[in-house]
């Protein structure tokens, strides 16, 4: 029985590690803000995977509640961070176009960010 639990934990934990690495790769290699945010959220999903896999105790025993509390907080924080980043991005776009209205369209990258 404990063998079975260990296999499940390793499977989901390994998947979580993979998500984290994928997210890191995408976060540092892709320029647009929305792509960075998707990468950040997927990195978070990887961390949550590891935590929930650690809390798993098989089908017969209730899981450990402490990592669940951490993950619940983490989900809320991740959404707040996403919203904050989007608000910052919008503010940066507006200030940039206010400061240099004549070159708008020249230094615009194709995805809405600026140089």
């Amino acid at each position: 029985m404990s063998h079975e639990i260990l296999i499940t934990q390793l499977l989901y934990g390994g998947a979580g590690l993979l998500f984290f690495l994928l997210g890191v790769w995408s976060f540092i290699s892709h320029e647009p803000l929305w792509r960075k945010l998707i990468a950040l959220n997927i990195m978070g999903a990887g961390v949550f995977h590891v935590l929930v896999a650690v809390a798993y105790r098989g089908l017969d025993a209730p899981p450990d509640p402490v990592p669940h509390a951490l993950v619940l907080t983490g989900i809320v924080v991740a959404v707040s961070a996403t919203a904050l980043a989007l608000a910052f991005g919008r503010r940066l776009d507006r200030e940039d176009s206010e400061r240099t209205p004549e070159v708008q369209g020249v230094d615009d990258r194709e995805d809405g960010t600026h140089v």
Binding site: H68, L72, V76, A78, V79
Partner: peptide, 18 residues
Amino acid sequence: LRAPDLALAEAAIGAGLA
């Protein structure tokens, strides 16, 4: 993984709001 509270939060906040 037997965490219905997290599933609720993820569906409503993670997928819905984000």
